[in-house]
Nucleic acid binder design. Structure first.
Length: 897
RNA sequence: GGGGGCGUAGCUCAGCUGGUUAGAGCGCUUGCUCGACAAGCAAGAGGUCACUGGUUCGACUCCAGUCGUCCCCACCA
């Protein structure tokens, strides 16, 4: 057989392995009626993006699920793609063009600019998918999509028109969030609230009749130029007399009324509120209620308008400064109070968002949100971990109409046309030839002019789970793979995206787009900070892959934390998962070195007569089978890190540390028949280990698999299922024997280490059996067990006895349940250390027996606890008592020594 | 203002539906060129599971509160 290199070197095979998978179409999912579908649509990364740790985690989780289901025989589709990320891309490309050519978007013009963005997309759009290949993503690249490709555009237009026709999309003049830097409106989700140090300025508005007037508190005095009235609560006795009267705007001199409205809270501020409908959401509503005008004093460029008089053209914050100074000087500033103001910022550029009255397109949310809420409550949509359902529900229950138009060029253009002749609006799937209202001919350059705006990125991402499968066409893919199985995403994106996919799918296809939302946390830096460009603390996954390999990175990310919680990324710690890969590599290397020259001569396990299997074989087979079952259960519950841990322990602790060691004598021996059996088990178990580990570490497992001379690739193989080893009584008995043997070996090693016995020095041991239970132990420790103990604990001879008289004088001992293991140490014996060890053991056992007997003496316990728990506790107590008696006896024996 | 997470070994974290001798990796100590692996092997030290109550026969686990810490949502002038 071919021999593996001595050291695991992922660079030497990861690329080749991936290319072979891709070349052979191993990621391709077919609409195979004989199989069950398993579908994940990948959250599409922005085309502007580079692969970062968040993607690495997100996509590793998806790849694990996909590979596992594929091995289980599902037709597993993991559909990849990228997002056009309207605003981020537009800003970025515009910046780059400006930096290199000094030209602005407007100078370039819409058509030319879009041409440039598409060019940019062609060059850089594929960068991230190349990086994803390095990670090992087994996605079906043949089905790769882009949120602005033709199919997605069709879906977007169709969805828009349908909603419009149902009256769920409307155009209206409303107060929206405006980012002056990006020059576009934003949805509520795109505004991030942050506490900012600010002030309340208490400003007196003098009464028109010459009285004292009213003092209001405001954090935004620069909006005063657009005040239309002062509002007070109708129940506020302080102001009842003043309702209906008027005050002057200080300095400005404009006269405004005092009105009563339910909005002001007498408890807050002075109880009187200045109302600026055009620049505050609450004021906007007050204005609507009272039919007030909406003067605008801050423009879309965040500069003051003519309404602000001498301040026209000044930046809003600079105006605030100067205006407050002017008010102060004129004696209208009553007092100032420091306060923190929650302030909205643009999620892309962090500019302070300005509430603005503007004509935009909106989606009416109430009717759409309702079934999405019900789906979750009914359990048709399940969040993992469940607590994230709260986030989801809260967002939907509080949702307001969604502003979907953006004053950008890069995106899906709104399918609405305005008639220059009659002023009518036509919303249609294609440019209408003529105005449906007045019949005037449209056409290029005609009377019909398409809306200039594009749609919110999330409008198209919301359709992702089905637009990628062919919707609005009724395709075989859509019928077979929809609804998808699970959506894997970070908790930071639930409201942006998850809720929109859910209501969009329910609206179009009548059901949620996935059964599970599997939510993960953020990958943070070693200090627990968010990784970000500005902090410069991000770690490039590609760098980690270069250093330790993709498998090590994946395993680290999987092992790192519980579902839904954040994890810290510490480069050094990836070493340990790389070391684990190396361990597996070498264990496989060992197996391969010992399989003999002719792999065909190794019988399949099914051809090995059961009687030929030794205890350690049975133990190993049963063990790996039960771990496989447990790990499978964990995977089904999305407990990926638990499954990871179990498989890791099985490989490292059981296979490498014990099984391989137990099997060496047979492999190195002369008995060819025994050797053949051993080889069969060795390969059989290794194959299962590779299968189990493959979803987590796809590269190394596939590479080793290739050396085993098996037909086909591992990626296309099968997930291990029960073959009856784990619940076979003979196997259980063999397992018990091996566990006892392991205990004895550990005990002897312990004694040797503490006595500093030279490793080369072989010592005879005596095992004293309990007269009562000795029979079983004698059987367990007879035969191979003695050989195992000799080989693995540096023992020259194992004697079993029931006779106290056989116990050697100068010996150290260890108590294992009902057994006492004596290791004669002669001059090495240190009775003080021996006593210390025994005292410690006695203390532990005394505590144990006390606890257990107390428990069992408790009537409540014996009355209420389940029978098997009581039985288990009884057995524990008996064992502890037995051991304690032995310790005590032994302690007595070494007392004076 | 509302909601949520976290607090377990020196560090980073597991511990699922209550019954375990409370675990892992790293770090630490000791000893190992023994025919897979020093990216290794063996042995070991190290935790009153933040605190206080409660439920229970039994609490790291469930509930309430306290303290500390992090996060999300939010149109209080």
């Amino acid at each position: 057989m071919k021999e593996l290199a001595k050291t695991y070197d992922p660079k030497s095979f990861e690329k080749r392995i991936y290319e072979n998978w891709e070349k052979d179409g191993d990621f391709r999912a077919l609409t195979d009626p004989a199989k069950k579908p398993f579908t994940i649509v990948m959250p599409p990364p922005n085309i502007t993006g580079q692969l970062h740790m968040g993607h690495a985690l997100d996509e590793t989780l998806q790849d694990v699920l996909t590979r596992w289901r594929r091995l289980q025989g599902y037709s597993a589709l993991w559909l990849p793609g990228t997002d056009h990320a309207s605003i981020a891309t537009e800003v970025r490309v515009a910046d780059e063009i400006f930096a290199s050519e000094g030209k602005t978007k407007d100078e370039l013009g819409r058509e030319e600019f879009l041409k440039r963005v598409w060019q940019w997309k062609e060059i850089y759009g594929g960068r991230i998918t190349e990086q994803q290949r390095r990670l090992g993503n087994s996605c079906d690249w043949g089905r790769e999509r882009f949120t602005m490709d033709e199919g997605c555009n069709k879906a977007v237009v169709e969805f828009f028109v349908r909603l419009y026709e149902k009256g769920l999309i409307y155009k209206g003049s409303r107060l929206i969030n405006w980012c002056p830097a990006c020059g576009t409106s934003l949805s509520d989700a795109e505004v991030e609230h942050e506490d900012v140090d600010g002030k309340y300025w208490y400003i007196r508005y003098p009464a028109a009749d010459g009285g004292e007037g009213v003092t209001v508190a405001t954090s935004r005095p620069e909006t005063m130029f657009a005040d239309v009235c002062i509002a007070v609560s109708p129940d506020d006795a302080r102001y009842t007399d003043m309702v209906g009267k008027t005050v002057f705007l200080p300095i400005i001199g404009r006269e405004i009324p005092i009105i009563a409205d339910s909005y002001p809270d007498p408890e807050k501020g002075t109880g009187a509120v200045k109302i600026t409908p055009a620049h505050d959401p609450n004021d906007f509503e007050v204005g609507e209620r009272h039919g007030l005008p909406q003067p605008v004093c801050i423009g879309f460029d965040a500069k003051m308008t003519a309404e602000a008089g001498v301040y026209e053209g000044l930046d809003r914050f600079e105006c605030r400064k100067q205006w407050v100074a002017a008010l102060d000087e004129a004696g209208f500033l009553v007092k100032t109070e420091d306060v923190v103001i929650p302030t909205g910022h643009c999620y892309r550029c962090a500019t302070v968002v300005e509430p603005m009255v503007s004509e935009q397109w909106f989606v009416r949310m109430e009717a759409l949100a309702k079934p999405a809420i019900e789906a979750a409550k009914r359990g048709d949509l399940k969040h993992v971990p469940a607590r994230f359902e709260k986030t989801y529900l809260h967002w939907l229950e509080e949702i307001r109409d969604w502003c979907i138009s953006r004053q950008l060029w890069w995106g899906h253009r709104i399918p609405a046309w305005y008639c220059g002749a009659c002023g009518g609006v036509a919303v249609a799937r294609e440019r209408p030839d003529a105005c449906p209202a007045c019949g005037v001919r449209g056409g290029e350059g005609g009377a019909l002019r398409q809306d200039e705006d594009v749609l919110d990125t999330w409008f198209s991402s919301g359709l992702w789970p089905f637009s990628t499968l062919g919707w609005p066409e009724d395709t075989p893919d859509l019928r077979y793979f929809f609804p998808t199985s699970v959506l894997v995403t970070g908790y930071d994106i639930i409201f942006f995206w998850v809720v929109r996919m859910v209501f969009s799918a329910i609206e179009t296809l009548g059901e949620p787009p996935f059964e599970y939302v599997f939510v993960h946390g953020l990958v943070r830096d070693g200090l627990g900070r968010k990784m970000s460009k500005s902090l410069g603390n991000g770690v490039d996954p590609i760098e980690v892959i270069e250093a330790y390999g993709a498998d090590a990175l994946r395993f680290f990310l999987l092992n790192g934390s519980a579902a839904g919680s954040d994890m810290r990324f510490i480069m050094k710690n990836v070493e340990s998962t790389r070391n684990f890969a190396n361990k597996l590599w070498n264990a496989s290397r060992f197996a391969l070195m010992n399989l003999g020259d002719d792999s065909a001569a190794i019988p399949p396990l099914s051809a090995v007569p059961r009687a030929e299997l030794r205890d350690e074989d049975r133990w190993m087979l049963a063990k790996s089978e039960s771990v496989a079952a447990a790990a499978t259960e964990n995977l089904e519950k999305f407990e990926l890190s638990v499954a990871t841990q179990k498989i890791h322990d099985l490989i490292r602790d059981e296979y490498c540390d014990w099984y391989i060691e137990l099997v060496k004598p047979r492999l190195y021996g002369e008995d060819e028949e025994a050797k053949a059996v051993c080889r069969a088990v060795l390969v059989y178990v290794l194959s299962d280990l590779l299968r189990l580990l493959h979803p987590f570490m796809p590269f190394i497992t596939e590479e080793i698999w290739g050396y085993l001379g098996k037909p086909g690739k591992l990626i296309c193989d099968v997930w291990p299922t029960a073959r009856g080893f784990a619940d076979d009584a003979d196997f259980a008995a063999a397992s018990a024997k091996i566990e006892m043997t392991k205990d004895v070996i550990r005990a002897v090693r312990n004694i040797r280490a503490e006595a500093n016995a030279a490793p080369a020095r072989k010592l005879p041991i005596l095992i004293k059996l309990d007269p009562k239970t000795g029979g079983a132990a004698r059987a367990a420790l007879g035969g191979d067990a003695a050989a195992h103990i000799k080989g693995l604990a540096g023992v020259s001879d194992v004697r079993l006895t029931a006779d106290e008289a056989d116990v050697p004088e100068e010996s150290a001992s260890a108590i294992i349940g009902g057994l006492v293991v004596y290791v004669p140490l002669d001059e090495l014996i240190d009775f003080a250390a021996e006593r210390e060890r025994l005292e410690k053991e006695r203390a532990r056992l005394e505590g144990e027996t006390l606890r257990l007997s107390g428990k069992l003496a408790n009537g409540g316990f014996t009355a209420k606890a389940p029978a098997q728990v009581i039985e288990a506790e009884r057995a524990k107590l008996a064992a502890a008592e037995e051991a304690l008696a032995k310790v005590a006896a032994r302690l007595l024996a070494v007392k004076g020594k």
